[in-house]
Simulated assay, not measured.
Amino acid sequence: MRLTVLGGCGAWPEAGQACSGYLVEHDGFRLLVDVGYAAFPRLLQHITVDQVDAVFISHGHPDHCADLNPLLRARTLRDDPPPPLPVYALPGALDAVLALDRPGMLDAAYVLHEFTAGSGLDIGPFRAETRLLPHWVPNAGVRLTADGRTLTYTGDTGPSPDVVELARGADLLLAEATHVDQVPDDSVGCLSSARQVGRQAAEAGVGQLILTHLWPGTDPSAARAAAADGYPGQIDVATADLSLDFS
């Protein structure tokens, strides 16, 4: 299993970076997990549009799904469009982004598979276990397993025992850590700090931790240090083109 980070900025992309977008590959299958602002041009630095085999969207905030629109445009507005792209999302999560173009324009570009958080999915070689995690809108964390290797991705979430259970024993936890230490009062329960994520990663016994969705302007070294206060393993920060092979 291989993870390539397309972007890991929270809210909006910093210069030269992108918002949440992650390419997960196994056995020749390419799964795009979230595709926020500016993630699409980053994707094109690695593969072509017709090489994407499926898309999984954690929730409907635009820093996680806005670039689904140019991806679908690039697949359908051509002389030789590829087959419809399977897109997995919670009910209603993609209504806004799919309504950006005139009715019917992108219909042939995708097949929408809406699922209930808590259900399991088979996406190519991946077994995907989902769980509803606390955020302002419904957010599906996902645990992807293939050939005995496991990656857990939180989407955006406040601290929760469900995060720990979803990540239990995973080889890699890709976790939202918008803030370093203190989550603002208006975001408590909906977003996490790097310090909280470190503690949850340790409790879950994960093999490696990647912090993502850092607020623009956050010092990555400060986020790593805060997470390391509770988690003794390897810690990275999601930046464009970070690539990890944990096969």
Rank of each mutant, 00 (worst) to 15 (best):
I57W: 09
L98R: 06
P134R: 05
Q200E: 15
Q234I: 09
S187W: 13
T130W: 03
A117P: 13
G16V: 05
A240R: 13
F115D: 01
V49Q: 03
Q182Y: 09
R224P: 09
M1V: 04
H59F: 02
G205T: 10
R102T: 11
A109T: 10
A93Q: 01
A11G: 10
P41W: 11
G141I: 12
G230R: 10
V197E: 05
Q45A: 15
R75V: 02
P13W: 12
T145F: 03
H135K: 02
L144P: 05
R224T: 10
L166P: 08
D236A: 14
L191G: 01
V97S: 03
T76K: 04
H179K: 02
A194W: 06
V97G: 05
L68K: 11
S243N: 06
D101A: 11
D50M: 00
R143C: 10
G230M: 14
Y88G: 01
L68W: 01
V188R: 11
L32E: 08
S187V: 05
L43S: 01
Q208E: 15
R224S: 00
E203G: 07
F56A: 06
A15Q: 15
D122C: 09
A108R: 08
L32Y: 08
R143T: 07
V52L: 10
D107W: 01
A228D: 02
S58N: 15
A226E: 04
A15K: 14
Y22C: 02
G36N: 11
Q182M: 12
D53I: 00
F126R: 07
P125D: 05
P159S: 11
G217N: 15
D181G: 02
T76G: 14
F40H: 14
A99N: 02
D171N: 02
R2V: 11
R143N: 06
A175T: 09
A240Y: 12
A74S: 15
D63Y: 06
A227N: 00
P62Q: 10
Q51T: 01
P103H: 00
V164K: 03
A240W: 12
G10F: 07
L98Q: 07
A222S: 11
P91E: 12
A204W: 04
G36L: 06
S221Q: 15
C19A: 12
V197T: 14
R224K: 14
P161M: 10
E129Q: 13
